[in-house]
Amino acid sequence: MLTYSPGDSPIHRLDPRSKLCFQFGFAIAALFSSGPRLAALFVVAALAVSVTGLSPLRALWSYRVVLVVLAIAPLIAGFTPGPPWFRLDRAAESLRAVARVVPILLLSAAYIRATPVRETRAAIQRTIPGRAGQLLGTGVALTIRFVPVLREDVREVRDAIAARGGDRRPVHERAGRLVPLSIRRALARSDELAVALEARCFAWNPTLPRLQFSRPDYLVVGAAVVLTVSPLVSG
């Protein structure tokens, strides 16, 4: 599971707002790229992940469930209910679309690795004014912190079922045990979270870390603008 890891890499030192801007521009460029341009974006994303101290292969492994789902898409797109049963042109078109998502996932892994949750919340709340920004910032912060806990609970439930011989049962029986127990754990965690927030006097507008652009941040934002308009220029 991808989580923030303290470090002193150039990406760690960037302002979270410039990193979010670059992610936006990068995603726009990736969705409208193909061939050598898409390969170049792959290289940029892989370098960004490596700079944060994370292996690109390990980052992709963290997204293995998403990648498996994406890999199924070309098979579904190429299938036809009659002869020739499978159309390579449709499958290839879907595969190109799937390939554009992979560098975006890689770059998001670099962001998660190099950006504390509090800084992400501060960036959102200071970019989007009012209660909407507070709600979005709080939701993102809680989601980033809560999802790894839920995944660990599901893993513990699965291991407990396997320890009792449940892994030898049919898939539907295992799912019938895993899903209800996981949901029960998630509901219990949500109750614990609500109590913890109340006990800590949860505030909509807490004292957030100070954010300040440096010279590299302006360069990153400039690169984000170039990436954002690149599909229009190439078109």
Rank of each mutant, 00 (worst) to 15 (best):
2 L>A: 10
2 L>W: 05
9 S>K: 02
9 S>Q: 01
9 S>C: 03
10 P>K: 00
11 I>T: 06
14 L>G: 07
14 L>Q: 05
14 L>T: 04
15 D>F: 09
16 P>H: 06
19 K>S: 06
22 F>N: 04
23 Q>P: 00
27 A>R: 00
28 I>K: 01
31 L>R: 05
32 F>D: 07
33 S>D: 00
34 S>E: 10
35 G>D: 01
35 G>K: 00
35 G>Y: 03
35 G>N: 01
36 P>S: 05
37 R>Q: 04
38 L>M: 03
39 A>T: 05
43 V>K: 03
45 A>Y: 08
45 A>R: 04
49 V>C: 13
55 S>E: 14
57 L>D: 12
57 L>V: 13
58 R>W: 15
58 R>M: 14
58 R>A: 15
62 S>F: 13
63 Y>M: 13
64 R>N: 12
65 V>A: 14
65 V>Y: 13
66 V>R: 10
67 L>A: 04
73 A>E: 14
75 L>N: 07
76 I>A: 15
77 A>I: 04
79 F>Y: 13
80 T>C: 10
80 T>K: 14
81 P>S: 08
84 P>W: 04
86 F>A: 07
88 L>E: 09
89 D>V: 02
90 R>F: 06
93 E>N: 12
99 A>K: 11
100 R>Q: 09
104 I>P: 05
108 S>I: 03
109 A>N: 07
110 A>L: 05
111 Y>C: 09
111 Y>K: 08
111 Y>H: 14
112 I>F: 10
113 R>G: 12
114 A>S: 14
114 A>D: 02
115 T>I: 11
116 P>R: 06
120 T>M: 14
122 A>D: 07
122 A>T: 11
124 I>W: 10
125 Q>I: 15
126 R>S: 15
126 R>W: 14
127 T>Q: 09
130 G>Q: 11
130 G>I: 07
131 R>N: 10
133 G>A: 09
143 T>R: 02
145 R>E: 03
155 R>W: 08
158 R>E: 07
159 D>K: 01
161 I>F: 02
164 R>C: 01
166 G>V: 03
172 H>T: 08
173 E>V: 01
175 A>K: 06
175 A>I: 14
178 L>D: 04
178 L>N: 06
178 L>V: 10
180 P>I: 02
182 S>A: 10
182 S>M: 02
183 I>C: 02
183 I>L: 12
185 R>K: 08
186 A>Q: 01
187 L>A: 08
190 S>M: 11
192 E>M: 03
193 L>W: 00
195 V>F: 05
197 L>G: 09
199 A>M: 09
206 P>S: 15
206 P>G: 15
207 T>V: 14
210 R>A: 15
211 L>D: 09
211 L>N: 07
214 S>R: 15
220 V>K: 03
220 V>E: 07
221 V>G: 06
221 V>S: 06
224 A>F: 12
225 V>F: 07
227 L>H: 10
227 L>V: 11
228 T>R: 03
229 V>C: 00
232 L>D: 01
233 V>G: 03
233 V>P: 02
